[in-house]
Design a protein around this nucleic acid. Structure first.
Lengths: 342, 342
DNA sequence: CTGAAAGCGCTTACAG
DNA sequence: CTGAAAGCGCTTACAG
């Protein structure tokens, strides 16, 4: 692989001059520039970005650490991040922690060794975020996506889970539901107050909050299935359920099927994100239109801004969500008998 | 950010010694080693991998270039690749070309500048792969995934599309279909002979191949929709359709809906991959279980092997696929009238 | 075992 | 404009 030295030799100029025609910072006479460019062509020279990074202390690399690529909306987020990165000439190193803190810790450390210019993070569910704090303090900017890390004061961009929860509860209550379940993720992670808002909105409707109808588990399909079976085994099972994401919703649907129940007749269902296939499910999924692309996109923008200006104030961007009503919430049907229970 | 020099100074040893305790290659006395390790702890020292890469000419970075992250199976593939990379201490730089050759060309070039140790590639649809050939010749190994690049003799791992096509056609013919459509991707890409096998299997059943029922377009949902409308407007429309992936299938389902047609009653449908939601669609999707995880996983293994031994023979790995029969192919229903046409 | 030194391929003041 | 040279932070023969 050709080096700048070889290019310089063949073009009969100094390496500095080659560097100057490449970077365009310092002007180079037309004659030399053309000579250099021609040699670069001939040699199919690709400047060694590693050497460059070492020198200028900048890698144009961003680490993107996500918690679960099984969740289809993650891809929208990735695409959003990539789009912003592309425009700024950055590249993405991507990881999936599978929500395991040890893996996250390992990746963050590896990313620090690689001197990425910044990190985008969907934190794994865990109460210990020392490694994130350490990374920040060492000078590498990190912006949190989807989940806010309590106590860390980082840039973050999240969806408005409070508003989302409120919209869901209002919708379900308006359909006559009073026993509403919630399948949520790790309670240690701030997700914009989904749980809190859920509870509060219920109480505004004078519906007592029933702790037994809330299950905090993972966010995978299997978690939805297991939590679903658990919820369905309650003596007073819910007549409607909110699932923190569509994967949980799919899992819950499986649990219902296994229990011989149908949706929405027996139990209505709403998910907190809206993947491409939601409309084609059976029943089609009432869902919150989750702004995953925007979260990735604005997260990256925010990160790039902080890289340029590390001193700027921390910001928290909250993106609106809106309810897309389809069949699974049963809105078009009359409520069935179980609704009229006390 | 601490450097090896600072660590050496504080531990009162040479930088070479620090390097030796880090790498473990050259033995270091227990006394010095412990002193060094302690300082590393204190300083929260993260060895600069950039400098290391420059010196040892190895980045432990792999470029993964995919054609469309909208396709949910891509994520399985990514996870497969990541799993193998993780075990070998490699990291992934990920790109989405959106099937645009200019983007692919740009990324390949950027990746060469970054001196990645190898590339995993789902090629964009295009007949010109000079940039890939150039990368290979310059000494960076690339293995092709999902699509074989004709004329390039690269390592590749693909699903057995021939067998898949054969299984689909056999299944549909056994249900009485004789007018079978195919929604495929770019014809310039070898996908293991899906199209060819489709045609051949039809002919084995003495069913004339009808060029008008085959549409080569992109692989996105929109492509499925548009190609679907086109197909449905044929004077003799098909009674069954094969879609090259589930995104196309979703698009086609949309086209059917828009045309007032239902699946499988009016037209049966099979997709060539099997995403997590296939079972929950309405109708549930008969599909080929596409080994995406394995393709990513074995692709990465193959790449790592070639990195270690650049001289080894090129291999082509073909992974089996098998048909998962659900509702959309209409297997459980009796065929309707249109079937009995000549 | 340990240290001093060269070198990986760039960029960037600094002289001219 | 152009070139010679120092230096980014490591690794690795080479002496001792």
């Amino acid at each position: 692989m050709a080096t700048i030295k070889e290019v310089a030799k063949r073009a009969r100029v100094s390496v500095g001059t080659v560097s100057n025609v490449l970077s365009g910072g310092v002007p180079v006479s037309k004659r030399l520039r053309e000579r250099v460019l021609e040699v670069i062509q001939q040699l199919d020279y690709h400047p060694n970005q590693i050497a460059r990074s070492l020198k200028i202390r900048q890698t144009n690399l961003i680490g993107l650490i996500v918690n679960d690529t099984r969740n289809p909306v993650i891809f929208d987020l990735l695409r959003g991040a990539e789009e912003a990165a592309w425009r700024a000439n950055y590249m993405l190193i991507v990881f999936d922690t599978g929500d395991k803190t040890e893996r996250e810790r390992h990746f963050v450390s590896a990313l620090r060794s690689r001197r990425v210019d910044g990190m985008l993070l969907i934190a794994a569910g865990s109460s210990n975020h020392d490694h994130i704090a350490a990374a920040e303090e060492s000078g590498i900017p990190v912006v949190c996506l989807e989940r806010e890390l309590s106590g860390l004061n980082l840039d973050c961009v999240v969806a408005d889970a409070s508003s989302a929860a409120r919209q869901c509860v209002n919708h379900l209550v308006s359909l006559g539901h009073r026993r509403i379940g919630l399948l949520d993720g790790d309670p240690n992670l701030e997700t914009g107050g989904r749980h809190m808002s859920f509870r509060q909105t219920l109480e505004e409707h004078n519906i007592p909050y029933d702790r037994a109808l809330v299950i905090h588990r993972g966010l995978r399909l299997e978690d939805g299935f297991e939590a679903g079976l658990e919820l369905l085994s309650r003596e007073q099972r819910p007549t409607a359920v909110l699932a923190a994401n569509s994967l949980l919703a799919l899992g819950f649907l499986n649990a219902m099927k296994k229990s011989g129940l149908t949706c929405p007749e027996d139990i209505a269902l709403i998910a907190f994100d809206d993947p491409i296939f939601a409309e084609m499910l059976h029943p089609s999924l009432t869902a919150i239109a989750h702004p995953a692309f925007e979260i990735g996109n604005q997260g990256m923008e925010l990160l790039l801004k902080r890289i340029v200006d590390p001193g700027q104030r921390r910001s928290k961007i909250v993106l609106g969500s809106k309810l897309v009503i389809r069949e699974s919430s049963g809105s078009s049907r009359t409520r069935h008998a179980s609704e009229s229970r006390p």
